[in-house]
Amino acid sequence: MNEDAIESTESGMDLLQLVVFQLGEEEFGVDVMQVKEIIRMPSITRIPQAPDYVKGVINLRGKINVVINLAKRFGQDSKEIDEHSRIIVVEVDTNEIGMIVDSVSEVKRIPRSDVEPAPAIITSKISEDYLRGVGKVDDRLLILLNLEKVLTGKEVEEISAIENSSNTE
């Protein structure tokens, strides 16, 4: 994964503007240009028979939006929903999807040059296909997501699982 994959923000500067959120033990960043809004947990209507990481649908000002449980998407245990829980609504390929995250903390600007490929310690937990890289902020690591992959519903886990097993051989 190289840094060219990350589009520059509107500022034109070599700065990436990221919405920083927490999920499990990690901190993540998502390009502010892809974020439509951040909302508190509304009532969610479950969709029976949908993939297990799909939490359901919500009424976002008259539009029906699918909401996914991001932790489940990564195959991790999800934290219980509490007062800090938020839904980040992102737009990917004209599709609007909400992602449940543990909390949203801030918006950070980081130079694009500070984005590096994700180290193995992270790719062992989250499929490499979902990642764009990591951004270094002081001594913190922000995991940058490849939302197109995370949210298109393609079952990349299986593919990457095969790749991983062949790599280790």
Binding site: I47, A50, P51, I64, N95, G153
Partner: peptide
């Protein structure tokens, strides 16, 4: 419900 994620949901 025209989300890619739900395309296999019947």
């Amino acid at each position: 419900l025209d989300s890619n994620i739900l395309k296999d949901t019947k």
